[in-house]
Write a protein that binds this DNA or RNA. Sequence first.
DNA 1: TCAGTTCATATGCAATTGCATCAAATTTGA
DNA 2: TCAAATTTGATGCAATTGCATATGAACTGA
Lengths: 155, 155
Amino acid sequence: MQEPSESVVKAWARLIRAGREVAASIENGLKEAGFPPLSWYDVLLELRREKDGRVTPRELETRILFEQYNLSRLLDRMETEGLVRRVPYPGDKRRQLIEITPEGRALQQRMWKSYGAAIERFVGAKLADGEAEQLGTLLSKLMETQDVGNCGGCS
Amino acid sequence: MQEPSESVVKAWARLIRAGREVAASIENGLKEAGFPPLSWYDVLLELRREKDGRVTPRELETRILFEQYNLSRLLDRMETEGLVRRVPYPGDKRRQLIEITPEGRALQQRMWKSYGAAIERFVGAKLADGEAEQLGTLLSKLMETQDVGNCGGCS
DNA sequence: TCAGTTCATATGCAATTGCATCAAATTTGA
DNA sequence: TCAAATTTGATGCAATTGCATATGAACTGA
């Protein structure tokens, strides 16, 4: 086993701490403005990005990194509030499509006013020109299974 | 209100996603190895860093970014497991000191074997030389209230 | 074609978190 | 010096999450 270097440990610690701090600040702002949690926004945004405003729960799950059972219940709550609707998936009775309602679209737009401002305040304003780009690039290296490994370009 | 630039939004999104992905991977490893969650480790580590192995809950709270009531209950669980002990704070009967036990120290050490390896695997191995340093520097800009503002260096 | 497997979603129950509030001890300030 | 305010920590209760498993639908392969 390989011991991580000091700078790696520090990067990890800061990743977690910065993420939590910024997320807490942003969530706070939303809550004070009377909005639901960020996870609701994430769902609404993913749906809004689809031309027909529909996605399967499975797809949503991977996009917003939610556990299946948690998403199922989040959708329950959002459906109760009239923000989304469950509609049958043509040709497969196991599956379903989650569809955003007009109320859902409206909420997403209202939330963005508050959310976007918070992102600018707690992220944008703290970084100099080019640093956001740089940060994004570095973070993307931590994501996904980028271990090509056994078959990188094999024919 | 200021709209965040695209690169800022992307950096924010990746901050959250990368944090979650890496944290999930690491927590998974710990769980599979039969260890408690990371929050337990955080507490043990903070205590171990003190020469006498003691800190007040208030101090812990800010160091590990835990809500007071959540920390109170986390300490309940850890105390039940014999990893920490609550001892009276001399001169103030409201306060207390959390003290790490020998079992707590032992657990911290065992956890580090697994935890350190995971950090190296999911963070260190994904970054080239110097990138961890760079990432840490960028992330630190997002933290703390760096708005000196009203009294920066006033006499 | 049908028994076994896999897939998509839901749900009961326990653990954890969030919120509001409490109780006790200390500090403040008139 | 004492009432009011503040600080520290705990706790009842509701909401959320995690885990295990259920339910029903669709594939798979002899």
